[in-house]
Amino acid sequence: MNSLSSIWTWMRHEWQLELRQKAGIQGAILYVLVSLVVAYQAVGEIQESEVWVGLLWIVLLFSIVNSSSRSFASDSPGRKILLYFWLQPGQLILARMLYQMAFNLVSGCLGFAVFCLLMGLPGGHLPVLLVLVAVGSSAAAALGTFMAAVASVSGNGPGLSAILGLPLMVPTLMAAAKGSLFALQGGLAQAWMYAGMLLLLNLLAVALGYLLFPYLWRE
């Protein structure tokens, strides 16, 4: 119970830090908006569901990579020592992963709303699409956060976390895109199956991060 409450405290702390240094949140929102506008300028309103789904997930992917790669980037050496003594490694990675997952879940849904506004929604079942966007974004965010941790411990900037994370996120996005395509074309049962698989992926990524992070953090 104690460790759960400290994870929760740390997640709130991350959120407060984010509110205080407004650049992070504003940057993330601006990033989504700009990429949406670029996509809209390039393609315009979309009729074909394949193109719609592909573009949606590319926009979401880049916003996820952008925001999750920040999660370990702003730690100064002094703050790292503080974290080292304050939290157990498992608590730290869980707090940051869950925070990023929640953040990207919300920003993914908002981005999705703006995307629908600009590009139109070519039919489909909205609730399952929303669920797919939510679980897909959070799964990719969990992977991105862990890769941000790897990049940070390796002494490289957040640039490396994108290089490491992108190949690992591709299968997640393939599943999410496939599920969304079913949702658009009326294959509801399959769409829910993909949503369930993405949910399992969330759990798997969190579990792996929890198990492996202590080895990264023992410097």
């Binding site: 862990f146 790897v150 690992l168 792996l208 991060g209 492996l212 992070f213 080895y215 990264l216």
Partner: peptide
């Protein structure tokens, strides 16, 4: 680090 990444 590469062992951790490899397992993941």
């Amino acid at each position: 680090i590469s062992a951790v990444y490899g397992i993941f």
